[in-house]
């Protein structure tokens, strides 16, 4: 692949991102429009309502206008990067997202590191100790990890490490730096448990598969050291499929941690998405949906690029 191939590849994916933005924003808008109740029902909730107040709110949020006019007004502002203000909190959507994104990113990255280190490490260990006690213990742990929802793991960790052994705080994101890492440790472990088990399972299977390949047998027959065989011949080949799932996992860990965020009262993007959907907070929901889709697409793009770099056969195909 030369630079032109690379540029074409990346620009095609970015163009798909724009198309996806349009489709997603329209579908989100339409779903919110047809679902029962309006923003006025959210804002006034169970309180008495006067006709004047209902009218004023309908005008303020353009609910008195036809669907397509409402959507066009949103698109027009969004094209100027003005995503409006949250109906529920009155704060600008971009400010609300900015306040939560760093926490979600840090939690996601923290959980990702834990996932990859423990998943790959234990997966390789289990493969090399195949059918021995270590392998059996690790595989049993994988079953537990895959079966346990992250919020159950979260509650368990809270009970053990915040209540019984008060080593970690029970809630919140801390005040920055090491304090934040300390606060995010239990949530990150809870979030990483399932994904680490998933990575472990795939790593073990991939390494076992590679270990049976002729080129590994041949490398050993050539008298290469065990470490070099593992590093160059086994891990490099076994990790290509892991690379693919790691991208998906990374997106999930950043935007999909809503249950863990709830369990530890961490205000992240996942919670914001759920809150804005349940409160029919359309400006906020649109903003978060676009962000989430951008994160997923960009991480997938990054994964594909890394995949192309790692596997020369794919580069040849694209070229």
């Amino acid at each position: 692949m030369d630079w032109k191939d690379w540029a074409t590849f990346v620009s095609k994916r970015l163009a798909a991102l724009v198309v996806l933005f349009v489709v997603l924003s329209f579908v989100t808008f339409a779903l919110m429009y047809v679902s029962p109740g309006t923003v006025v029902d959210v804002l006034l909730a169970g309180r008495p309502r006067s006709a004047a107040t209902v009218h004023a709110l309908n005008v303020e949020y353009h609910l008195d206008k036809p669907f397509m006019v409402q959507y066009w007004m949103w698109v027009r502002d969004a094209l100027r990067f003005n995503f409006g203000s949250s109906i529920q909190t009155t704060l600008p959507v971009t400010d609300e997202i900015k306040a939560r994104l760093p926490t979600s990113l840090l939690l996601g990255v923290y959980a990702y590191v834990l996932t990859m280190v423990s998943g790959i490490g234990l997966g390789v260990l289990a493969a090399f100790r195949n059918k021995r006690a270590v392998d059996r213990v690790v595989v049993a742990g994988t079953v537990v990890g895959l079966s346990m929802p992250s919020f159950v793991a979260g509650v368990f960790l809270l009970f053990v490490f915040a209540v019984q052994l008060p080593w970690f705080p029970a809630f919140g994101k801390g005040d920055g730096g090491l304090d934040t890492l300390w606060h995010l440790t239990l949530p990150a472990v809870a979030l990483a448990m399932t994904s680490a088990a998933y990575v472990l399972k795939h790593t073990r299977a991939a390494v076992l598969g590679v270990l049976q390949q002729d080129y590994v047998v041949f490398a050993r027959a050539r008298g290469l050291s065990n470490g070099r065989v593992i590093r160059v011949y086994v891990l490099r080949n076994a990790l290509i499929p892991i690379l693919t799932i790691s991208g998906v996992l990374f997106s999930y860990l950043i935007v999909g941690g809503v249950l863990v965020e709830m369990t530890f009262s961490i205000q992240g993007i996942g919670q914001l998405l759920v809150q804005s959907a349940t409160a029919k907070d359309l400006p906020m929901l649109q903003g978060v949906v676009l962000l989430v889709s951008a994160v997923i697409i960009l991480v997938n793009l990054l994964t594909d690029v890394v995949y192309l770099i790692a596997d020369p056969r794919l580069r040849l195909k694209h070229g």
């Binding site: 809270l158 009970f159 029970a170 369990t263």
Partner: peptide
């Protein structure tokens, strides 16, 4: 301190 759920809040009171 703002909490997302009361279980977490109860744990915080307990600790």
């Amino acid at each position: 301190s703002f909490f997302s759920n009361e279980t977490n809040e109860a744990v915080a009171l307990r600790t």
